[in-house]
Amino acid sequence: MERCKNCGRYYGEPKKVAVGEKCKFTVTTYDEKTGSIRKASGVTGKLKYIFSNSCYSVEYRKNKYYVDTVAHPDDPSPLTLAFVGRCTCPAK
Rank of each mutant, 00 (worst) to 15 (best):
residue 52 S to W: 10
residue 80 T to Q: 11
residue 92 K to P: 00
residue 49 Y to W: 04
residue 43 V to E: 13
residue 5 K to P: 00
residue 80 T to M: 11
residue 55 C to W: 02
residue 44 T to E: 15
residue 60 Y to W: 15
residue 26 T to S: 12
residue 17 V to R: 04
residue 67 V to C: 05
residue 76 P to S: 11
residue 69 T to I: 13
residue 66 Y to M: 11
residue 78 P to Q: 02
residue 64 K to G: 02
residue 38 R to L: 15
residue 76 P to A: 12
residue 6 N to M: 10
residue 53 N to L: 10
residue 43 V to Q: 06
residue 48 K to M: 15
residue 41 S to Y: 08
residue 66 Y to H: 13
residue 77 S to A: 14
residue 59 E to F: 04
residue 19 V to L: 07
residue 4 C to V: 04
residue 5 K to V: 00
residue 83 F to D: 06
residue 19 V to Q: 12
residue 16 K to A: 13
residue 86 R to Q: 00
residue 47 L to G: 03
residue 23 C to N: 03
residue 74 D to T: 11
residue 7 C to G: 10
residue 49 Y to K: 15
residue 86 R to H: 06
residue 86 R to V: 01
residue 63 N to D: 14
residue 17 V to L: 06
residue 74 D to A: 13
residue 51 F to M: 06
residue 79 L to I: 12
residue 87 C to L: 06
residue 53 N to V: 02
residue 61 R to H: 09
residue 14 P to F: 09
residue 91 A to R: 07
residue 9 R to V: 06
residue 73 P to W: 04
residue 57 S to I: 01
residue 35 G to A: 13
residue 43 V to D: 09
residue 27 V to R: 13
residue 16 K to Y: 00
residue 33 K to M: 09
residue 9 R to Q: 14
residue 39 K to T: 12
residue 26 T to C: 06
residue 40 A to I: 02
residue 70 V to W: 04
residue 82 A to I: 04
residue 58 V to I: 05
residue 81 L to G: 05
residue 26 T to M: 05
residue 43 V to I: 12
residue 72 H to K: 02
residue 35 G to N: 14
residue 52 S to T: 15
residue 16 K to C: 07
residue 40 A to D: 03
residue 40 A to V: 07
residue 82 A to P: 01
residue 7 C to R: 02
residue 63 N to A: 07
residue 30 Y to E: 13
residue 7 C to Q: 07
residue 44 T to S: 14
residue 22 K to P: 00
residue 21 E to C: 05
